[in-house]
């Protein structure tokens, strides 16, 4: 098997994550889509680390994970506080950008 299969898998996961962000309206699910995209990028990094024989890729993936954790914490806090204020977790209800 060629290692590029991993890359193809990562691409597919990334595309599904993108589509989730575009199509779903529940903010939490949208957020999970973002996480999926980050994970697919990690898979890419790990695979390239193996191809190039350099651990830097794995370290990068590690940093992505840590930053993603921080992002999740803040993002979910925002979702919770929006939910408290508006009783809804739908991204379409938050079209304050328009006004």
């Amino acid at each position: 098997m060629n290692l590029s299969n991993y890359l193809v898998l990562a691409s597919i996961l990334f595309a599904i994550g993108t589509a989730t962000v575009l199509l779903r309206r529940n903010a939490i699910i949208v957020f999970m889509g973002v996480e999926l995209m980050l994970n697919s990028a990690n898979l890419l990094l790990v695979t390239f680390a193996r191809i190039h024989g350099d651990l830097q890729g794995q370290v990068m993936a590690f940093f992505v994970m840590v930053v993603a954790a921080a992002e999740v914490v803040v993002g979910l806090a925002i979702i919770v506080s929006i939910f408290r204020a508006r009783r809804s977790a739908s991204v379409d209800d938050v079209n304050l950008l328009k006004n």
Binding site: S4, S11, F14, A15, T18
Partner: peptide, 18 residues
């Protein structure tokens, strides 16, 4: 739009890798 863009991204990325 979402479906087309999602498929487009997948196609472009897989194209690159292939």
């Amino acid at each position: 739009i979402g479906a087309i863009l999602g498929l487009g991204i997948a196609a472009a990325l897989i194209g690159v890798i292939r």
